[in-house]
Design a protein around this nucleic acid. Structure first.
Lengths: 229, 229
DNA sequence: GAGTCGCTGTGACAAACTTCACGTTGCCTG
DNA sequence: CAGGCAACGTGAAGTTTGTCACAGCGACTC
């Protein structure tokens, strides 16, 4: 392998207007928490509260909202409704965005189920599988197509997000095929890093690695305090 | 909510011997990639190659291996077998470690399936669900117990890792219950941040947020280059 | 067996990310 | 309507994380 020149920018990539991966992730969490707020509660919220809910600091929350240009009122906090809308203005595509899922195994089906009750701004609208048995069926309101028709369906429907739940050996091939069809962002559940050009975005959902992380820290983290006020 | 004093250390936590979350995650990926290497290939590997496979830089790989005290030979690289063992020495509990899964829905079942073919060092050995219908059954070689028996089973078997795949509203309650039973590390698939004391480790697997990240960057990433050599 | 090449190990540097801390603002009380 | 309080906005400092670049070494060549 060629030692020099990282053809693909390694590690993490940046966004256009300066919003980083972590900021987007936090904004997404903020929005969800705000949406789940009981409708009876105050129409405003403090950075402290949002911080506590999302498990970070008030300063962090304020800075995140600052970066999307949202401004609250001192002594009353942030308007919840408007804040939800403001985050939506950043996260959501105004025209909406659709996703395709490749690999209708156990995990694929579970994800289809997971995303059926989903905001109209971002829906999985098509699933694909090599197994001809599965084609034509509708799983959780989502039609399953033969994998061979994926490029055409993706192109016709203008799908831009791909969820990969195929076995590891097929993941790279499937991803390249999706990329060729116009998909730009990938959520990869296969336990193998994808190698795609820099104009594609890949989010690795590596369950195995996450599990090993948890196991490691479960062992090595400081034990429970016995005393403490 | 109390503005001052972050009772739980917010954001990320550290490990005892100085290994960070990201380092553990990369080591886990390195090991998996090394294990999947065709047995016919060279018994050594260069940092450049491992970097290319794992999508980061050679310097990063070398530094990671340095932190676990593994040393390669110049001009020949790292001994693959020994490196796998060295990473195992860091990641794996010598006595092995077991996990429990709460919430045998679609996602729970998929994960049980995902982890059946799994290294003996880290296995899901018990599943729990509120639904009495599911109790007693064996799904993917893993017995399902009533949720009420979780504390006892966890304690008896010395389980230290918990996987949470219950609906969001139950997640916090289930997690606290698991923590009380002795579980120290959590893999949380519910779309709600868990609030646990500092001596617990929580890894959030927030599929919704990941999906929104992908959608965002699929839109805003620089478009494909048309030219370029 | 001297020279060359290329890879490792690592101090120094740089970039990214988070937290601190304080000036500012606006509400609420008396 | 003035004073006090509490929360926001944000420059600056601090911390973490990743990259650079080079000394040193071992193998291989001729």
């Amino acid at each position: 392998m060629n030692p020099k020149q990282p053809l693909n920018p390694p590690t993490q990539q940046r966004a256009l207007p300066g919003l980083t991966e972590k900021q987007i992730a936090r904004l997404s969490v903020y929005r969800r928490l705000l949406q789940e707020l009981p409708s009876a509660s105050r129409p405003e919220i403090y950075s402290h509260d949002l911080a506590e809910m999302s498990r970070n600091t008030a300063a962090q929350v304020r800075r995140d909202l600052m970066t999307i240009g949202f401004t609250g009122s001192s002594a009353r906090g942030y308007q919840v409704e408007q804040l939800i809308a403001a985050i939506g203005g950043t996260l959501d595509a105004p025209e909406g965005q659709t996703a395709a899922l490749c690999g209708v195994g156990n995990l694929g089906r579970a994800l289809l189920d997971y995303f059926t009750i989903w905001r109209p701004q971002l829906r999985i609208v098509a699933a694909f599988d090599i197994d001809p048995e599965k084609s034509g069926r509708v799983i959780h309101r989502c039609r399953v197509w033969p994998l061979a028709e994926m490029p055409q369906v993706v192109r016709e429907q203008g799908i831009t997000v791909g969820v990969i739940t195929v076995p590891a050996p097929s993941a790279q091939r499937v991803a390249e095929s999706m990329l060729g069809a116009g998909i730009r962002g990938f959520l990869n559940f296969a336990p193998t890093p994808l190698h795609l050009p820099a104009h594609a975005y890949v989010e690795e959902m590596d369950i195995t690695t996450s599990m090993e992380k948890v196991a490691y820290f479960a062992r090595t983290l400081a034990p429970a305090p016995v005393e403490e006020s």
